[in-house]
Write a protein that binds this DNA or RNA. Sequence first.
DNA 1: ATGAAAGCGCTAACAT
DNA 2: ATGTTAGCGCTTTCAT
Lengths: 352, 352
Amino acid sequence: MTKRAGIRDVAREAGVSPATVSLVLNDRAATRIPASTQERVRRAAADIGYSPNSVARSLRTRTTRTIGLISDEIATTPYAVRMIEAVQDGARAHGHLVFLVSTAAERSLERDAVAALRDQQVDGLIYACMWHRDVEVPQGMPPGSVVLDGRPDRAGYPAVVPDDRRGAEVAVQALVDAGHRRIAYVDIDEDPSPLASGLRHEGYLAVLAAAGIDPDPALHVKGSADAVGARDAAGRLLELPPGRRPTALFCFNDRMAMGAYSAARRHGLEIPTDLSVVGYDDQQLIAAELDPPLTTVALPHYDMGRWAVEVLLGSREAPPDQGVMLMPCPLITRESVGPPPAEQKEPGRRRT
Amino acid sequence: MTKRAGIRDVAREAGVSPATVSLVLNDRAATRIPASTQERVRRAAADIGYSPNSVARSLRTRTTRTIGLISDEIATTPYAVRMIEAVQDGARAHGHLVFLVSTAAERSLERDAVAALRDQQVDGLIYACMWHRDVEVPQGMPPGSVVLDGRPDRAGYPAVVPDDRRGAEVAVQALVDAGHRRIAYVDIDEDPSPLASGLRHEGYLAVLAAAGIDPDPALHVKGSADAVGARDAAGRLLELPPGRRPTALFCFNDRMAMGAYSAARRHGLEIPTDLSVVGYDDQQLIAAELDPPLTTVALPHYDMGRWAVEVLLGSREAPPDQGVMLMPCPLITRESVGPPPAEQKEPGRRRT
DNA sequence: ATGAAAGCGCTAACAT
DNA sequence: ATGTTAGCGCTTTCAT
């Protein structure tokens, strides 16, 4: 890289002082400087390819137009990159650049990251979780930093999470509307249980209650978070005697719905004819690609990410005091939901 | 944020000059300053919680310990975030922070990003593609910047891409080793055809040739890149008369392998008993979760990302002149490959 | 309407 | 062995 042109180079070229160049190039010239001079300055700048050194400017103005995005993990839940993209887009819209640092949720790395970012004088910090959870805000996070997809343990940090309870309601309601009354919840078996697990269970129960359906505890099963765990859990459900067997499965997530598909297949059940399935997450490359495509509830990653930057950069109101913003999770209707089978029948034969 | 302590605060506290503090804190004190003074300085710094302002330091040293990572897209191929993570990790290992900017592959955004990053005085730039392709290096990219998962159109840019040809060879060889001789290539139908498509085809043909198998053009089919397109393409293959039908499918990617699974299922074929399938990408949340788990070839995203930072930051040799580094793609053996069925039989019955 | 000069917080020559 | 000084490239009073 050859030496970059500086403001004094422009000044010399235009026959004015550096101060004037600064004024003009920052649109602070308003009334002060005649259009002709402004024109001359801009020409000179363009001619020599001048572009201000952000570091010097930052030192002087004490604002860097950068933000830091700390994410606890990045690769495990690939679809959550939508949050990163959203933060990116929002930052760009505000003329900011973003430092990304992922910390694998290690406390010491988190502290280092916060410190490094503060040393860089970032204008704001976002702490992003890759899944809805309680978060212990890292030491040194300046108040005003926003928490993304997590619930901060301390006040002073605006936060946004998906409205999992409401999302589950929408999902289960869709099943009720299709005529189902024996609806199972294929839950995740993890310790500690994710916040989303409980919230979605609440939503599930609320809709059943509202529909006058007595919840059958046997229809709340748990399996490990992968397709195999879900396949087994769903399998147990499908082995229930005809009268007790569910006609619809609400699955904790799309990955588990994928397992439910396997179980149905192994039981000779057609989706959605013999069994309806709803997932959660709207995970790219799963939900839409399953056969048949999966009806699911979308996690509003992009919206949450956008919300976070905008609150951080002040273009949107933070929720009053301790309030956590609940972002709606829309139902994505595809083809895995149908009316319940006319009667409880024997495991069907595959169509030929 | 209350006013940060500065180096002069530490100096006053320790009863020395700012210069001494700088020396000590940067481990440049070597022989010059007695241990006792050093200790005093460090104590003072710790006491008042001093941490140097990176912006000021950068202005002075003309090096920022930051790098810029420009990625053409981020959300579409979620598994490619492994590259970002790798860059992250490598940067951290070198004490650098990374600016992430995604440009949706728009030329004007790319140019803006390059300019903004240069204004920030980043120490280096990486241009990352989300899939192996030819890249027109954005205007203003300083020579020495590295291209990740792409082939630059100009010299002066070290680059790394997956060794798709060799990867395909390994995949098809696994099939040959299992005893297959009628092996199809379920290719992607896209215009322009991705580099990987052609390279993998070459690898496929090379292995067949080496095994003395005459390639049957009817076994090279194409489908759209989603599960449905692949299902149809694979379906056509499975409808071939017994003697011509393939016993194994090499799929362009895991998503298409997923479609092949659907097709097999619809034809009453069991995997791997009746049909073997190999994918490509080792896409998280697909390959491992399919039933049965998919044998596939991994794209070395992490390794490539790591390579890129290390070359950028000088801890690894760049390939000689125009050379593009080919990163090996390892075979991930799971359960979708078996020996060919004893004889061409009628579509099998599902196990009960 | 413009310029001179100070200074953001640090580091690196150069003195002492 | 340590301190003084002069900037890094900009912005911003304050003078003129």
